[in-house]
Design a protein around this nucleic acid. Structure first.
Length: 603
RNA sequence: CGGGGUGUAGCUCAGCUUGGCUAGAGCGUCCGGUUUGGGUCCGGAAGGUCGCAGGUUCGAAUCCUGUCACCCCGACCA
């Protein structure tokens, strides 16, 4: 079977589409792989579909090897299961909701935990059937506030989602590890670089979670990693707790006039003018303690004002803040919030006033004081003095005030310490291409999935969920593999392995090209044959480069003399070769390229 | 949701500031010829409610008001 450009439904664009900004989007549209249907929604043309299927096939092979069975759910689902787990409401505007003619609510699934759980409930009744994993490759729908970058962040996207079911934590750990191993093999076979970072399970519930990130500046996630092997996304990074220090030599705190110094910046300037530093150096932002006030609204609607103190040279990171207060709405305190607590003097908030404790344990204020993990007993700070235009110097944690607890919400910087002692971390950007979760019993509990154990007792099932963004990986591959002329697919996912161009109009050339294509196909090579009669060679060459097959074979002016030309799309190398050597050469190249990744994956 | 930008032919865009005859170009498409290893060249043709609605004006792609859509940055993103 030879696929021919003369009959293939495709069209290349001479110019970049106006709406496409990022390379993957631009080239996939220009080369005729996808077409935009609506914001964040794309139609798949034959070439794009082939790439998508190749990625899916690799995922299927590795899922099978990991012991997972493939199933297929509808994307259109009824409201009830999602109502039971609370996600119908929690998902908010991001959920595509619709209504049938009877007025019943439906949704386009953003992810399928609920129905997988219910399927398991339907079918599995005994511990003897545990553990097991099932998965599907399906389209997911999320009504993104702002879809962007073509396939990289769409509203419809294809995802492999697997779910594991077991009775014990050991089952879960085992399934999790098998999926994790499969992911490593999948990404290696695809030729995608990845970093596994510990992540925050977040609203998915559950305990352990890791993300597979592709390091790239176009990525939307920030993560940190150390040379010693620590890696975590920015939400999951844990600041190492410092040891308490001896503060016996620290003089008593003193209060200084700091008129108008309601920011850290102004404060440091004033200190350097009027207050000598005990160590005879300049004051810096890191000497100060910044008190930030937030209003935390819990799930039951109760609004609490909280003060968080972090070193003055840091800022609060919103994502880390969210993690610190799970299941709560958190926002900066309003003027109305502050008005209720006169001890919170905007710009001059501090734990101590006139030597008396204000915030923290033993303080008069009812407001909770949480501090950065770097603020431990014995550390010395400049803080607000809880009075307008006044700051206190040499305020010692553990002596002058005692926080209620810690809040690890400050930003992470290059050079911060990794919590596992593996050195300092550096920050980097990454794109999430896979995510694995140990969900635990959350879904099983709310949907009533339990089975009989060895002792005949009903036991709630423990679950995991494991996702790979198929279409996002496709876009990432395009993003990583292209040049000025077009796409440059790795052999493992290229729509065809060889692009055969008949360059010339003579019958002789076409006969030879036809015969060559047939030989390729017969030996199992996936060949795309540019047999278009009325197209100039220049156009065919440009198309071949834009479409991006790994190898281009040109049957042209030298064909009658028994010669062809082969191009290596990635390296740009071109060489003349006898027609009867083509097959052998290509086969060895293709086998090598495929093997190099599969073998690496097998290790 | 906040900020910015753009809507004119299948595609990429010009024209709009300063209103004026029949709304343009390149590419693509179709026809005839030409060329055949780098998006050939020549000639001809088809193709547009100028996003939509309202207003100002003798006259609106152009000015005004409203509205819709799309793109980009940010917020958001199991």
């Amino acid at each position: 079977m030879i696929d021919r450009l003369s009959t293939l439904f495709f069209k290349t664009l001479r110019e970049d589409p106006a709406a496409a900004e990022v390379a993957s989007h631009r080239l996939l549209v220009r080369a005729g792989y996808i077409r935009r249907q609506a914001p964040g929604v794309f139609a798949w043309l034959p070439l794009g579909l082939r790439v998508k299927n190749k990625i899916s096939t690799i995922v299927r092979e590795e899922m099978a090897a990991a012991g997972a069975s493939e199933v297929y759910f509808p994307a259109l689902l009824p409201r009830e299961p999602y109502e039971q787990t609370g996600r119908w409401g929690e998902y908010g505007d991001e959920l595509f909701r619709l209504r049938d003619r009877h007025g019943a609510d439906y949704l386009l699934a953003p992810t399928h935990e609920e129905v997988f759980t219910l399927l398991a409930k339907d079918i599995v009744t005994s511990y003897k059937e545990m553990p097991f994993e099932i998965y599907q490759i399906q389209d997911k729908y999320r009504d993104e506030a702002r879809p962007r970058a073509g396939l990289l962040r769409g509203r419809e996207f294809t995802m492999k989602d697997a779910y594991s079911f077991g009775l014990t934590d050991e089952h879960l750990a085992d399934s999790y590890q098998r999926q994790r191993d499969a992911y490593e093999r999948i990404f290696t076979r695809l030729g995608v670089e990845y970093v596994i970072v510990t992540a925050q399970a977040g609203a998915m519930g559950g305990s352990k979670s890791e993300e597979f990130l592709l390091p790239t500046t176009v990525g939307e996630d920030t993560f940190v990693r150390s040379a010693g092997g620590y890696a975590a996304n920015i939400e999951a990074y844990v600041t190492p707790q410092l040891e308490a220090r001896d503060y016996s030599g620290v003089p008593a705190a003193t209060v200084h006039e700091t008129p108008g110094a309601n920011t850290i910046d102004k404060l440091v300037t004033q200190l350097n003018k009027s207050v000598p530093h005990p160590e005879n150096r300049s004051w810096s932002e890191a000497d100060t303690l910044k008190h930030v006030v937030f209003a935390v609204t819990s799930a039951d609607g109760e609004r609490e004002v909280v003060v968080i103190a972090i070193p003055g040279d840091r800022v609060v990171n919103d994502k880390r803040l969210e993690v610190a207060f799970p299941n709560c709405e958190i926002e900066p305190a309003t003027a109305a919030d502050l008005a209720k607590y006169p001890e919170l003097v905007a710009g001059f908030i501090g734990p101590v006033k006139d030597g008396a404790r204000v915030l923290g344990k033993g303080g008069e204020s009812s407001v909770r004081l949480l501090v950065d993990p770097r603020v431990v007993s014995g550390t010395v700070w400049v803080t607000g003095a809880a009075a307008v235009d006044k700051h206190a110097v040499a305020v010692v944690c553990g002596r002058d005030f005692e926080p209620h607890g810690f809040a690890d919400v400050a930003n992470v910087r290059d050079g911060d310490l990794a919590p596992d002692g593996s050195g300092t971390v550096e920050t980097a950007r990454g794109m999430e291409i896979g995510h694995i979760f140990q969900l635990g019993k959350k879904y099983a509990q709310s949907l009533g999935l339990s089975v009989l154990n060895e002792n005949g007792k009903l036991t709630t099932v423990t679950m995991g969920s494991y996702g790979i963004g198929i279409t996002r990986v496709l876009a990432a591959l395009a993003e990583l593999n292209h040049d000025a002329k077009g796409l440059v697919w790795p052999v493992a996912v290229a729509p065809y392995q060889v692009h055969l161009v008949a360059a010339g109009k003579s019958d002789e050339i076409y006969k030879i090209a036809e015969k060559t294509a047939a030989e390729f196909a017969a030996s199992g090579i996936e060949v795309l044959f540019d047999d278009r009669l009325k197209v100039n060679p220049g156009v065919k060459f440009s198309d071949a480069e834009l479409l991006g097959m790994p190898y281009v074979v040109v049957i042209g002016r030298d064909a009658t003399g028994g010669q062809a030309e082969v191009w290596d799309r990635a390296s740009g190398d071109r060489e003349k070769m006898a027609l009867d050597q083509l097959l052998e050469w290509l086969n060895s190249k293709l086998v090598n390229k495929l093997n190099c990744f599969t073998q690496r994956a097998a290790q």
